[in-house]
Amino acid sequence: MDILGLYHYWVFAVLLMTGFYAIVAKPNLIKKLIGLSLFQSAVFLCYITFGKLAGGTAPIVGKGAELFSSPLPQVLILTAIVVSISTTALGLALVLRIKEAYGSIEEDEIQEQDAP
């Protein structure tokens, strides 16, 4: 049971690093942004996991339940999700401008064009 209880955190670690791998290893700018979103989703999973209380329910009082999972991590992650989508939107807008300016969205091709 204890090992099963840690599984969520392992998934967090794997997701985090899968996203990070896409960020550092992929030259395509859109792929980097996809990696960035995965990377951030992993953190969301971590927070929500440690907010969970065994036998608890969603923190909505007044349904007769007495045990509630912690609301605070959920609040934090609501904010973080919004931050994440905002970053993605801005990043994509940048990608569009880069595509117009360079004609490419591959990092190495852009660097070649930048080299004097």
Binding site: S41, L45, I48, G51, K52, L53, A58, S69, Q74, L78
Partner: peptide
């Protein structure tokens, strides 16, 4: 997964956003 972890609000947001 969020829904199973009692985070209904977050699940709704993740679905709408993600």
């Amino acid at each position: 997964s969020f829904f199973l972890l009692d985070a209904a609000d977050v699940a709704l947001t993740e679905a709408a956003v993600g």
